[in-house]
Design a protein around this nucleic acid. Structure first.
Length: 502
RNA sequence: GGUCCGUUCGUCUAGGGGUUAGGACCUCAGAUUUUCAUUCUGGUAACACGGGUUCGAUUCCCGUACGGACUACCA
């Protein structure tokens, strides 16, 4: 595989879909694996769908994901510009060449004309069977065409699809896909606003930018024969890239392509970063803001449609680069399983060094305007480390170390709060208040003493103690909790609970 | 409707003419943890269907069913 050059070519029509991130990832992995080049091209040929901020968003998302761009928008390169709206003349020139050689023609049909044609014949398309009934340079005289163009009548340029030719797409993932050219229609190449359509722009740019592999979503497979035809008409058959059409990301339940609607409905993000739609003002949550680590997302995404053929599941970007091959990409679509994504996140979050966890905790504490010494943060983090899936869990599970419980779990109280417990807690409170700092072991001994003084086994009142201290029944080791809280705070919370709960 | 693509546990998948069809997530049970979580052990659970080829098919071929994508002057 000489000189691999791949591109990720999104449209700036809104936030980047998570499936787009996976497509970018596979391109990136192949580029890095082969020492090739990763190119970012922005396909902004549809002016009506342009959304301000979308390009910036794409750049930010890729950066967050750790997908680096070697060439293209944002970094420049030898084939600039990389924004298709800035390459207009190039496409026009190429379209003209096609016309000159009889592979394309101009068409003047209005929307009403097209509609009428479709009405006339069911399932009709603009192709070899209908093009001679339409208003185009094949049916009009040269003079008429020239006049229409001179008077500024809008027109498009269409490809002239040859009849009855078998076109074979050799897809790296799907093998040979054969299509009869008669099934294809005379697709518009240049729109009436002078901009190219995807089909033309894509082929011209991939050739000019010397792309070696086109790795894109399966939704492009049906138009791949058209693209191949274009390569042939331009005389670029030898330089045509290899194609790899990726299976789609499917919705978690039922069937169909994963959509934003599904994500909203099931309560998880679909965009890498939070996105605010500039037109509607609607804010859509992002994976980053939901607490997903980029490493976890990348690992998760890589495994949706690809696997290394071993039982290893945790892969760093470097490991993915080493293991990735297009041959091991599957053919069937994958349902987007958010639970698996959470599992990956848990794995990555827990394996971070303690210092990172401390930093995470300090961040949330700052948000809540709580001061905390590093050593205390360290204690809390140590107690919580094995219990977190998202960074926010450090706060949700750790806040009881910084503020007394706001409420007491009613069920827990009715089950575990007893007269015996109150007596033991009182006794323990009077002891523990003497010790500003107390170790877990000391706390344990003290509780046992208090319990036996009341003729009770300590095990019977531990749940009540936990309720008094944390408001509920779950949390880190109780003795460790007391150690972190300290004797004074422990006593204060017991006091409060005993006087509040009857 | 037409064209194309696909189909192994609920999910992500490995595998491949003769296997106890393997792993992970989820789930369930047990152990550990005087809680919960973690951790450990174990369990439930799959080759869409029908033909053919073959001594033998989940694996190869054909068909059917089901699902999906595409069918715009959107990408």
């Amino acid at each position: 595989m000489e000189n691999v050059r791949v591109r990720f070519a999104p449209s700036p029509t809104g936030a980047l879909h998570i499936g787009g991130v996976r497509t970018a990832l596979y391109n990136f992995l192949l580029a890095r694996k082969t020492g090739g080049t990763m190119i970012l091209r922005i396909e902004d040929t549809d002016q009506s769908r342009f959304v301000p901020g979308a390009e910036e968003y794409i750049l930010d998302s890729l950066r967050w994901a750790g997908i680096q761009i070697d060439e293209g928008v944002g970094v420049g390169g030898p084939h600039a510009p990389y924004r298709q709206s800035e390459r207009r003349e190039i496409y026009t020139r190429h379209a003209q060449k096609l016309i000159k050689e009889g592979h394309a023609y101009t068409a003047f049909d209005t929307e009403a004309d097209l509609e009428a044609m479709r009405q006339r014949t069911p399932n009709a398309q603009y192709d070899g069977t209908t093009r001679l009934q339409m208003k185009n340079s094949l049916t009009l005289s040269e003079a008429e065409v020239a006049k229409k163009i001179a008077t500024g009548e809008p027109y498009v340029i269409r490809i002239k699809i040859p009849a009855n030719e078998e076109i074979t797409v050799n897809d790296l993932i799907r093998g040979e896909v054969k299509v009869d050219s008669s099934q294809l229609d005379d697709k518009v190449l240049i729109k009436s606003d002078g901009m190219p359509t995807y089909h033309l722009a894509n082929v011209v740019d991939d050739y000019l930018m010397k792309i070696s592999h086109v790795i894109r979503g399966e939704e492009w497979l049906p138009s791949a024969p058209l693209h191949l035809l274009l390569y042939r008409f331009f005389g670029w058959e030898k330089e045509a890239p290899r194609f790899a059409h990726l299976p789609l990301l499917l919705k978690p339940d039922g069937n169909g392509k994963l959509s934003k609607r599904d994500a909203d409905r099931m309560g998880f993000p679909i965009f890498p970063l939070t996105w605010t739609d500039p037109n509607s003002g609607i804010v859509s949550p992002g994976f980053r803001e939901a607490g997903y680590l980029p490493e976890a997302m990348i690992n998760f995404l890589a495994f949706l449609g690809w696997n290394p053929g071993t039982t290893q599941e945790l892969f760093s970007m470097q490991e993915l680069i080493g293991a990735f091959t297009l041959e091991r990409v599957g053919k069937a679509g994958s349902k987007f399983d958010i639970q698996k994504a959470q599992w990956f996140n848990q794995q990555y979050l827990r394996s971070m060094p303690v210092s990172d966890h401390v930093a995470l905790l300090m961040d949330v504490l700052k948000e809540h305007q709580i001061d905390c010494t590093p050593s205390r943060a360290n204690q809390v983090v140590t107690a919580l480390r094995e219990r977190v899936t998202f960074p926010k869990d450090f706060w949700e599970q750790g806040k009881i170390f910084f503020q007394p419980p706001q409420t007491f779990d009613k069920d827990a109280v009715s089950k575990k709060w007893s007269a015996d417990a109150i007596n033991v807690l009182r006794a323990f409170g009077q002891e523990v208040i003497q010790q500003r700092s107390i170790t877990a072991d000391e706390a344990k001994g003290m509780i046992e003493k208090a319990a036996s003084s009341q003729g009770v086994k300590s095990g019977q009142i531990l749940a009540a103690l936990r309720i008094a201290l944390t408001g509920g029944l779950s949390g880190p080791d109780l003795m460790v909790t007391i150690e972190i809280l300290g004797g004074v705070e422990t006593a204060r919370r017991i006091d409060h609970a005993v006087s509040t709960l009857k």
